[in-house]
Design a protein around this nucleic acid. Structure first.
Lengths: 339, 339
DNA sequence: ACTTGGCACTCAGGAGTCGGGAGTGCCAGA
DNA sequence: TCTGGCACTCCCGACTCCTGAGTGCCAAGT
């Protein structure tokens, strides 16, 4: 159905359209890319590609532009992820190396990604559900009030205030600290429930009620409904080509403000070790139907702490952006694994 | 120079223009507002107002629109801050009351503010420099590595990793904890330097070098260059009226991505207990010259933890937005003071 | 001294017209 | 299977025309 030359024509169309933003015609295409055939032949190939749904034209006397399906074919078969240029690599390193804590890492990464790709960048904080407990601190705020501070191996810090059913002495708090510390230190968050399951029985009766409320808070807010966090940058990049979005960038901005939407985008990744691309209508998110999303998981050796990626017009430099997303994901993964 | 009727005309122009987004002409104005005079008279007044620089017209045969100076006069003398409607009050309460921690409070507030005002909302986290130490936790990560966790009275949690010049036993860490805890508990962050000044001398020689590095980190990263944080929401609101911004919303989005810019906006508030408005060119920030900014400080009884506000087109409902910003600022202030 | 109606003037913006040019589809010949 | 030729389509920019909202100013009225 599609011989090599037709594929070559498709590639040329995608590349030209991506770089010029203008529908590309048979003549210009035959000239610019040395295909060795005449415009007429290119026209025939174009007609075939259009029949198959890979390209369209906005109106009769205009050139062709790729469809979502065309981009999909391009991404899957016609392009290879572009490795970064040395200056880009240097930029990543110098940008990320000064980070002082997790917040800093995430904020720097997201800005970096936005700058590199010139798209909107999204970085998810390391998911609590895939982290382990590094430390659980219990601070005695008031006789009947505790502050729990959970610190994970990835550097996330989560805090919750616990109102107690009874007042507590400092010694009691020390006891609590010991009990929880011993059981939780180093445990993956998902294992916390089982690690704590026999706790009420094992503890001295005096502090049982208190212990139970602390347990409840720990389990509920840190394990069952762990809070996901996300950083966003580069929204101004959406305005670079007003042509890229049918009406306005409104729906896109709205979608990007929804944490849930972003989590969904980053979460739909099955294999965290490779770059994923969702093109146009492939996005299940209303409002992002005219955008493409490039994502990848990051984390140590193939497992994933979380995801990151970029959102841009379907008319984007896939090869380049995929390379950039992959590179940043790897750097961030290493950085956090080493922390 | 400007008699009462002229002021009334200005008010009418501002109100009509704000609600319709269209230049307002003498006839429509005379009809809609019962000024009791003819369009011709209104025209004369308009000419006077234009001479004084309070209004302009985009072209000869168009109606008048307010200038920045006109809005300024309107805000200063012709409008009163609009108190919230009962449903709005309820919305605020129900929106904020479920917050579990500081992050949650800030995120909810910023979304709330964006929804209420239908503008871009900005909320600054309670500034470290105006907070006190509630607790400083020292976690022993590795023999030569500590994690400092600072918890402030406003609920902020800041962490830093300290690499030590020597290895440390758990007992040493306990000692550190005691020493710092005793001196810092309850101290305003600005007083921390003096509270720690005699520390090296007072401490046992064995842990002095370690103590010094910890001190350095505390002072540098928590006191001298305290990290300011800011939350943003509602950027999609910028697109509601494309007419509002000369070219595109690009420069506005860019400005809003700069933390520094936002801090500057919120920081220029001298008296934290009242609402402040910066109109158009009054903004020193390149990129926000076509926007107005409504800000207020929040905090307990007149002092300020931080600032919050909204950014929108100069054509905004000043009275309403000022009321909304004020209300949210007060609620947030109370909420954090009680925490 | 204001206010008012009248009137000539201005000018943005929409509707209609037109021609150029880029691009297409198709066909017949190599 | 490719290619050159050719008729056809139709977007887009330029041009013109026209309408209507709105103004500025003047002279008369109160």
């Amino acid at each position: 159905m599609l011989d090599d030359r037709k594929l070559e024509v498709l590639r040329a169309i995608v590349e030209d359209f991506v770089s010029t933003t203008e529908p590309v015609g048979s003549k210009a295409l035959a000239e610019r890319h040395s295909l060795g055939v005449s415009p007429a032949t290119v026209r025939n190939d174009m007609a075939a590609l259009e029949d198959e749904g890979y390209i369209t034209h906005p109106h009769t006397s205009a050139g062709r532009i790729p469809t979502d399906k065309g981009y999909r074919l391009f991404v899957d078969q016609l392009s290879t992820v572009k490795p970064l240029s040395p200056p880009e690599r240097r930029a990543i390193q110098s940008f990320l190396e000064g980070a002082v804590d997790l917040d800093d890492v995430v904020r720097r990464s997201v800005r970096l990604l936005a700058q590199l790709t010139r798209q909107v960048a999204v970085v998810q904080y390391p998911s609590l559900s895939r982290s382990s407990v590094r430390h659980l601190e219990i601070v005695h705020l008031a006789p009947n009030r505790l502050l729990l501070v959970l610190i994970t191996d990835t550097g996330r810090v989560e805090q919750r205030v616990v109102e107690l059913p009874a007042t507590l002495s400092d010694d009691d708090v020390g006891l609590l600290r010991q009990v929880f510390g011993a059981r939780l230190h180093g445990a993956p968050l998902v294992d916390v429930p089982s690690a704590l399951s026999d706790l009420p029985d094992a503890a001295p009766p005096a502090i049982r009620p208190v212990l139970t409320s602390v347990m409840t808070v720990v389990l509920e807010s840190l394990v069952e409904q762990p809070e996901e966090r996300i950083a966003l940058a580069g929204t101004a990049n959406l305005t670079r080509h007003s042509l890229d979005f049918p009406q306005t960038i409104r729906p896109v901005l709205e979608a990007l403000e929804e944490q849930v939407v972003l989590l969904k985008l980053l979460g739909e990744v099955n294999d965290p070790t490779t770059v994923h691309v969702k093109i146009g209508e492939e996005n299940n998110v209303e409002g992002l139907r005219s955008t493409s999303v490039v994502t990848m998981g990051y984390g140590p050796d193939g497992s994933a702490y979380g995801g990151l990626g970029v959102v841009g017009p379907t008319r984007m430099d896939y090869a380049g952006n995929m390379g950039q997303v992959r590179a940043v994901a790897r750097y961030v993964g290493e950085l956090l694994a080493g922390a």
